[in-house]
Design a protein around this nucleic acid. Sequence first.
DNA 1: TTGACATGCAGGTATTTACCTGCATATTAG
DNA 2: CTAATATGCAGGTAAATACCTGCATGTCAA
Lengths: 106, 106
Amino acid sequence: MDADKVFKALGDPTRRKLLDLLCEQNGQTLGQLCENLEMARQSATQHLDLLEAANLVSTVKRGREKLHFINPVPLHDIYERWVRKFERQRLSLLHDLKQELEGEDR
Amino acid sequence: MDADKVFKALGDPTRRKLLDLLCEQNGQTLGQLCENLEMARQSATQHLDLLEAANLVSTVKRGREKLHFINPVPLHDIYERWVRKFERQRLSLLHDLKQELEGEDR
DNA sequence: TTGACATGCAGGTATTTACCTGCATATTAG
DNA sequence: CTAATATGCAGGTAAATACCTGCATGTCAA
């Protein structure tokens, strides 16, 4: 998993919208997805290319159409590496800050 | 929670390293954090400002020092909004793609 | 008080990014 | 075959980003 590609892919509202659109209906064509975006088709293609590079979307060609499918695996990897780690220490991390704000003896 | 700020903050290796450094030892000063980065202090400050804007890091001034603390809450919010949603549909999403790859009747 | 130390602030630049337009290619329908 | 349709490819531009240098400010210790 390339965390950099995944986070950068997710760091754009258009690409997050594309994921939401695919979540509503998986396997949509480029044309279908474009109907819901207010930009040129070519721009949407570039966004989808980034999502595909991050392995968040997989595509299949069917004739002259290109179908897009969500791949949830990278999101799960992000969870394992970047959420659970901090989640586990959540209480103690907040505790550190609270102590500092209260100005404990030092 | 501002998903855009959080994902953009996470979309840079230096900032993810900063989070890891703070996870190892919470409450570090700017100077301490800089010792582990190969860039000018001013550049590190800019990265920390973005982490703070995304609410991933909180700071407290102590004399002439500035202490940095991780805030795990935005990461948890990301999980709720962007991981669990797709996780729930994980199996069915992969099913869709498998069907397409196998070229079921259509 | 004064010098050392920790950080803040103000620009400047090279790279990346998010758009666009214009044209090419490939597939299907009639 | 031919026209319509779906997508691919090749640039071009304005804005955002990630660095930097230089200097200012604030705090502590001797």
